[in-house]
Design a protein around this nucleic acid. Structure first.
Lengths: 195, 195
DNA sequence: CGTTTGACCTTAATCGTATTTTAGTCGAAA
DNA sequence: TTTCGACTAAAATACGATTAAGGTCAAACG
C-alpha cells in the first residue's frame, strides 16, 4: 500500500472538525475555523470535502462506525438472543455518553432542525431498527422469541429506547441505570402479566 | 342555582378561542381575534382571563377533561387490568385525532417551544403517567401484574406510546391501527420470549 | 354591583436597509 | 496532486423606524 498522504490530511480535518463541531454544534462552526484548526486554507478543505454538510456527515459516520464495531461483534457472537439485546442496550447507552456529535445530531433536532440532519437521524434510526430487527428475527427463527410483527416491534423498541434516554439518565448514576435498563428489558422479554 | 351569566360569557369565549387556536395555533391567534369572534371588546376578555396563556390553558383543560371523563370511567369499571390498559390506549388514540389544541400543544413542541406550553405538556404527561401507574398498581395489587418499578414502567409505557404515535399512524388505516396496538400490547403483557 | 368598553401604555414583532459573515468557486502557483 | 488567495453570491446580523399585539385602567353602562 502506497503512502496515503491524502487520507492523512482528510483524517486530520475530520479530527479537528469532530472537536469543533462537538463544541459549537453544526450551525455555529464555520469552515474557516475548521481550516484554521487543521492549519490549511479554507479552499483546501473543499479539495477534500465538497460541502460543510459532507464534513459533518463524515464526522458522524466516523463516530457511528465506532459503535458499529462493537455492535457487529455482539451480533456475530454465539450468545443467546436475550443477552444480545442486553449487550446491545449497554453499548448503545455507552455510545450515548461518548459520541458527542452523533448525539448532538439527535438531541438538537428541535432547536434548529436542518433537513439534512433530519436525514442523518432517519438514516441511523433505520440502521438501528434494522440491527434490533436482526436480533429479533434470529430469536424468532431459533424459536426463542415470538412476536406478530418483527419490524413493528423493532420500531417500538428503538422508539421507546430513545424516549427513555432522558428519564433514564436523570438523577441516575451509572450503576443504577444498568439495573433500570434490565428491569425494563425484563418486561420486554417476559411481559408484566403474571402466570 | 342562580343564573350564571358570567359563566356563559366565559364559555362563549372558550368556545371561540378553541376554534381559533385550533386553526392558527397559539402564537398566530391574537386576543383581538378572540374578542371579535366573541363579540366583545378586548378588555372584556381580560375581565374573564388574566392573560392569553390562561385562555389557552383553559381551552386545553377543557379538551383534556373530555378525555378524563372516558378515562375515569375505564379506571372505575370492574374489568380486568389488562383490558383497562387496552381500553385506555383506544381512548388515547381517539383523543389524539379529535382534540386539536391539546394535540397541537404536543406536536408543535419543537416548532416554537414556548416555555409555558412545555409546562402544560409536562403536566399532562405526568397526569398520564399517573393514570397508567394506577392501572399498573391495581394489577400488581391484585396479583395480575408483576414489575420491579411501577413508576418507571409507567414512564416507559407513556414514552413508548408517544413515540409510537407517528409510526403507528403513518400509512395505517383505523382498523389496522387497532391490531397493531394490540400486537404491541401483547408484548407488554406477555413479552417476546417463548416458554 | 357586576360587566363592558375605548383610550392608553409598553413591549414584542415586522420591516427595510446597510453591513458583515460565511459557504463555496476558480485559476494559478507550489 | 495538493494548496492557497482572491473572489462571488447568498445568508446572517445590525439597527433604527414602524406597526401589531398583550395587557392596564378609569370611566360608563345597565
Amino acid at each position: 500500500m502506497a503512502l496515503a498522504y491524502k487520507d492523512d490530511v482528510k483524517e486530520k480535518i475530520l479530527d479537528v472538525a469532530q472537536t469543533i463541531f462537538g463544541k459549537f454544534g453544526f450551525k455555529k462552526t464555520t469552515v474557516d475555523e475548521i481550516a484554521a484548526a487543521a492549519r490549511k486554507a479554507k479552499s483546501s478543505i473543499y479539495y477534500y470535502f465538497k460541502s460543510k454538510e459532507e464534513i459533518f456527515e463524515a464526522v458522524i459516520e466516523k463516530e457511528a462506525s465506532l459503535i458499529r464495531v462493537d455492535v457487529i461483534k455482539i451480533l456475530e457472537s454465539n450468545i443467546d438472543s436475550i443477552d444480545k439485546i442486553k449487550q446491545y442496550m449497554l453499548v448503545r447507552m455507552k455510545a450515548l455518553t461518548e459520541l458527542v456529535n452523533f448525539n448532538d445530531a439527535y438531541k438538537n433536532q428541535y432547536l434548529d432542525h436542518l433537513p439534512f440532519i433530519e436525514k442523518i437521524r432517519v438514516k441511523y434510526d433505520e440502521e438501528e431498527i434494522g440491527l434490533i430487527g436482526r436480533i429479533l428475527k434470529e430469536g424468532v427463527d431459533t424459536g426463542k422469541f415470538y412476536m406478530q410483527d418483527v419490524n413493528l416491534t423493532s420500531i417500538a423498541i428503538v422508539t421507546a429506547m430513545k424516549g427513555l434516554e432522558a428519564p433514564l439518565f436523570i438523577n441516575t448514576e451509572n450503576s443504577e441505570m444498568e439495573s433500570r435498563i434490565n428491569s425494563l428489558l425484563d418486561i420486554l422479554f417476559y411481559g408484566i402479566v403474571v402466570r
